[in-house]
Write a protein that binds this DNA or RNA. Structure first.
Length: 520
RNA sequence: GCCGCGUUGGUCAAGGGGUUAAGACGCUUCCCUUUCACGGAAGAGUCACGGGUUCGAUUCCCGUACGUGGUACCA
């Protein structure tokens, strides 16, 4: 077991600090992005000091190469830009936990000097045996705490010279916090209000591990102090360990210097129970990562919101509303509007189930709302991936404008717009055939001739010629519009037929009608 | 097991002693459009349960249930 943690300094702006871990296999989870987002909004509002994002993970072998860069990319895609890279240093460098190892050790030893922590030499096996024994006794608590510590192998029970001998012999040890029982630890959470814990229920957590690395508990307190953190936002899963951190602040730096805490509600699975995980996304067919994540060890790719066709504006908007609301009916927010309206006090206490349908709705709204120029280059790339190269940007954007309200994801543009660039491969003639007549055939033949005689070829003329001819031949224009649509686009969808005809031009219109006529 | 946090329609949620209990997503129906979508109108659907406190509880208090998190030399 080995632990390594990373801290990335992201933004030289606020004293608010967010800490989060990527998924155990890498990837930036929805919950992580939301934590960063709330932090960012809050920081922007207060704009004081530094904005630091701390990324941590255990087990070095699993902590993946490239995860730091990946996280930067995700945040940049979201529009949360890094002012300094992880390697650039900054006021409070270094940030990687492995590079701060000595700092933590110093504080751990200071705690021992003050009799607020102690050396423990128990092996994993001994601790397990202790738990088994207590379980057998029917004890409600299985903790390593005041009730049991004097029966264990630690510097509290051992004589000073015994401890020294063990230390000198190089016996592996950990440093544990000494929690005094029968006291109350209280603090105020920005979201939950006053919270109290009985110290009797808090165990003597390991602060410094046998390999000399700190646990999260020590690191978070020491770093927050040293980096002058004023507010700490983190997931609700941290709430149970908050008393350890409060105690550490009391012991080390004084409770008055402690940052303000905000424990954010969890994002839960849409169905069933539990925290949303990567597996749920795979199983239910939606992403849980901001961007595609490729596991460097297995090569497995996990789909991200970006690649699925989400706009960063929509992604952030959706995430912001999952656990927070402004108290009025507004739901669509730009990042600037979020900075204006966000209020940590209005964050919900309860966990929220993730709803992919609603997420898509946000994307749909943003596609409609934004000018196509805003995302045309992304769509262009999507087209390129499907082997459709765009050469005329003006035409391209005109087409996007025409179909944008039919697209929920950016990837939908392809299906909704291909026929503006290439004649449909498959024409749904089966929908025309049942009501097809020679008279209709004659109509289209005459229509082509008339179109070719017209020099303007605008939506208006294409339509008026169509209707005049229909009236002349005593056919209801409505009976002809659907066939015409299918001839031009291949199926029953798309914007107005005459608009499509005018857009693709005379030559294409004629060609497609002729092609379809030959199939009927 | 023990400890913490939570609970308003299927989902996100407003409201916080007296309300016809907002709104959004999704669903259904209709209108618009002789396509699809957009847009518009309507509809179904809710205060977890049991006790208090109160003239009156969805709202306050206590229990219970349920959910969720923690209970690691993971974060």
């Amino acid at each position: 077991m080995y632990t390594k943690s990373y801290t990335l300094s992201l933004h030289a702006m606020s004293k608010v600090r967010v800490r989060f871990a990527p998924s155990p296999t890498g990837g930036l989870h929805l919950g992580g992005v939301r934590t960063v987002l709330y932090n960012y909004l809050f920081a922007k509002q207060h704009s004081e000091g530094k904005f630091i994002v701390r990324v941590e993970d255990t087990d070095q072998s699993r902590f993946v190469v490239g995860a730091e860069e990946y996280i930067f990319e995700c945040l940049q895609w979201c529009g949360i830009r890094a002012d300094e890279s992880v390697l650039a240093g900054g006021e409070y460098a270094p940030y990687r936990q492995s590079e701060r190892k000595n700092i933590y050790k110093e504080y751990a030893e200071k705690l021992i000097e003050n009799n607020q922590a102690y050396y423990a030499f128990d092996t994993t096996q001994e601790i397990e045996e202790m738990r088994e024994r207590r379980k057998a006794e029917g004890s409600g608590s299985l903790q390593y705490d005041a009730g049991i510590r004097l029966k264990m192998n630690n510097s509290l029970r051992l004589l000073p010279e015994e401890t020294k001998a063990l230390l000198d012999a190089g016996t592996p040890y950990v440093i544990r916090i000494k929690v005094n029982p029968n006291e109350t630890v209280a603090f105020t959470d920005l979201i939950r209000g006053d919270i109290e814990f009985e110290t009797t229920n808090v165990d003597d957590k390991v602060l410094l591990k046998a390999d000399g690395m700190p646990t999260y508990h020590l690191a978070v307190v020491v770093d927050d102090y040293l980096m002058k953190i004023s507010h700490a936002f983190r997931g609700e899963e941290w709430l149970p360990s908050a008393p350890v951190h409060i105690l550490l602040w009391q012991y080390l730096f004084g409770i008055n210097n402690m940052p303000k805490w905000a424990h954010l509600p969890l994002i839960l699975k849409p169905e069933g129970n539990g925290k949303l995980s990567k597996r749920d996304g795979d199983r239910l067919g939606f992403p849980v990562y901001a961007m595609d994540w490729k596991d460097p060890t297995t090569g497995e790719i996990t789909k991200g919101f970006k690649e699925l066709g989400f706009l960063p504006e929509a992604f952030l908007n959706m995430l912001a509303m999952l656990g927070w609301n402004p108290g009025n009916e507004q739901e669509i927010f730009s990042i600037e509007e979020l900075i204006q309206s966000f209020d940590i006090n209005r964050v919900h206490k309860a966990g929220a189930k993730f709803d992919f349908e609603k997420a898509k709705w946000f994307n749909h709204e943003w596609i409609k709302k934004l000018p196509v120029q805003h995302y045309s280059s992304i769509v262009k790339q999507i087209f390129a991936e499907k082997k459709l190269e765009i050469t005329d940007d003006i035409y391209f954007e005109k087409v996007l404008e025409l179909v944008k309200e039919r697209c929920t994801l950016l990837t939908d543009f392809y299906e909704q717009a291909v026929y503006f660039f290439i004649a449909p491969k498959h024409i749904d003639v089966d929908s025309i055939k049942p009501k097809w007549t020679d008279l209709k055939k004659e109509f289209f033949e005459k229509y082509i001739t008339k179109l070719q005689a017209d020099s303007t070829f605008t939506t208006v003329t294409v339509e008026s010629i169509f209707k005049e001819l229909a009236t002349e031949m005593a056919i209801k224009p409505g009976d002809l519009q659907l066939p015409m649509r299918i001839m031009l686009v291949g199926g029953k969808y798309g914007p107005g037929v005459f608009e499509i005809a005018a857009t693709i031009g005379l030559q294409q219109t004629v060609q497609r009608i002729e092609k379809a006529l030959s199939l009927l």
